[in-house]
Amino acid sequence: MDKLAEAFVIALKMIFSGDPVVMEITLRTLAVSASSTVIACILFTPLGCLLHFARFPGRGFVIGFIQTLYSMPTVFAGLLIFLLLSRAGPLGELGLLFTTKAMVIAEVFLVAPVILGLVISALKGVAGEAAETVRALGAGSLQTGGVVLLEARFAILSAFLMGFGRAISEVGAAMMVGGNIAGRTRTLTTAISLGIGKGEVAESIALGLILMILALLISLLVHITGMRKS
């Protein structure tokens, strides 16, 4: 018990003294997670809108499939991206394996279904009553679409934050395609995993606390955007 308390004290010291390694790892984690979330937002929000507004055969199946991908194990996603980017793989020429770019690619892959699925749910959430009302007032398709999007904007924003939460807490894929190289591809989660392997408890707790604080901030943001909606 003493050891545990001691580890927490060392952890807090590391955080508040601005330990350069801890700071560097934290910044890299934020950069990788934010990049992958932004890319996934730009690529997949329009696709989510398309899937919501468009009508085509098999639409229900596609949406169901996307929701299945929510629970895609991250190590498996990591393995697929690893095989893709490995020098013996189809994109090996790019030399992306064991770089932060590879980690961003893997995380876009993991965040995309979350954003797609939640954007569709967000639009669906307002589509019913609001869309009916607007249409009853004589609005055309364009105006109806606009109103639905406007109504859903906070729910969509919280979808982005959920995606960011998935990216920042991800460990399996980050480890496989990033390789956890010190000063280059090490993030909070992979550093924690190494720290546990090396028996460096205090350092792991420090990094874990930072990750928890970041996750808490994200869920607060999700909560606040949810409040503004209602």
Partner: peptide, 10 residues
Amino acid sequence: QPAPVPETPA
């Protein structure tokens, strides 16, 4: 969200 900074190795 924070601006994308894909590469930060010092």
